[in-house]
């Protein structure tokens, strides 16, 4: 042992503290994660810390920041628009997450059945395809589809004698319209993740249960669901975080209008930061969203212990 270590030490004299193999391995490990760590620090951790700092200031980008203490946080409680945009964001999150994950699961279960080879790929690709298209392009296409007077959706509804719907300019319809587009676009990703989960379930479980006389619903409830619960959990967390931060699809479709009826929290943050140049207040709002996402994620992890089964 010692004779093996000795010659190496001679070949690579190096600093004293690297004398041990384990130390050298550790160094290599650190070097490997260094780029990621630097990126994380520069682009995620740094901005978060900066946002916390800026949230205590009045800062318009062009003139130096001045410290205002908790003023921006006090304003959070007297801002009626903040309540509206939080309401919109929560409404969007509840429906977008449940529909994306629910429909994704349904599609995955359907596509996991025995379907002739090529057809299986056609279906999977078709449902996943919207995920691949840049959101802005698909949003513009949806904007055309949703037009009240020239949109193709209202054209076909008209053939069924249904009055044209102002999808994007009616206060009742605007958020549902955005959710519909979001589900069309994003459910394919949930489907793909579920498919991977489903394919990991050994067929032996199903065969055994079927021998015991379980029906399809029972198979799904007692075998499929528990065994894909980690996947389901993953999807719920990912979709929840994404939905709470919804921005681009709304920006392209309605810019938050009419009025504030479709304005999401992140659009509101953007508006304050880059249109009103109120970086301090925008940062304070962003911090509230950050805290809420952290808390919700922790709650989900805690609840997850009860229903997520890791093999």
């Amino acid at each position: 042992m010692a004779s093996l270590a000795q010659p190496r030490a001679q070949i690579q004299p190096g600093p004293r503290w690297l004398a041990k193999e384990s130390q050298r391995e550790a160094l290599a490990g650190y070097l490997f994660i260094l780029p990621t760590f630097l990126g994380y620090t520069a682009f995620i951790l740094g901005p978060i810390v900066a946002a916390v700092g800026i949230s205590f200031t009045k800062y318009d980008i062009l003139t130096p920041a001045s410290f205002v203490g908790l003023e921006n946080y006090a304003r959070l409680f007297s801002d009626p628009r903040l309540r509206t945009v939080y309401g919109n964001t929560i409404f969007f999150t509840v429906f977008a997450v449940s529909l994306n994950v629910g429909i994704g699961l349904l599609l995955a279960v359907l596509l996991n059945r025995h379907i002739p080879g090529p057809l299986k790929y056609v279906f999977r690709s078709a449902y996943f395809f919207p995920v691949l298209v840049a959101l802005v392009y698909s949003s513009i296409i949806w904007q055309f589809l949703y037009q009240k007077d020239t949109g193709i959706i209202n054209y076909y509804l008209g053939l069924l004698n249904i009055e044209p719907i102002a999808w994007l300019s009616n206060k009742q319809w605007v958020l549902p319209s955005i959710i519909i587009m979001d589900v069309w676009r994003n459910t394919g990703f949930a489907m793909l993740v579920f498919l991977a989960g489903l394919q990991n379930i050994s067929t032996e479980y199903y065969e055994a249960a079927q021998l015991d006389g379980a029906n399809r619903l029972q198979l799904f409830r007692h075998i499929t669901l528990p065994l894909i619960s980690p996947t389901l959990f993953f999807n719920l967390i990912i979709y929840m975080i994404g939905a709470l931060q919804v921005f681009d699809s709304i920006m392209v479709l309605t810019k938050g209008g009419p009025g504030d009826t479709s304005r999401s929290l992140v659009i509101y943050i953007y508006e304050n930061a880059f249109q009103f140049f109120e970086m301090g207040y925008a940062s304070a709002v962003a911090i509230t969203l950050f805290i809420i996402i952290v808390i919700l994620t922790l709650i989900q992890f805690r609840l997850g212990r009860a229903w997520v089964h890791y093999a």
């Binding site: 904007q143 007077d149 102002a166 300019s169 392209v252 810019k255 209008g257």
Partner: peptide
């Protein structure tokens, strides 16, 4: 006049 489309950007 037709409805105005929220604040969307297409010049309908």
């Amino acid at each position: 006049s037709p409805d105005v489309g929220g604040e969307a950007g297409v010049d309908v």
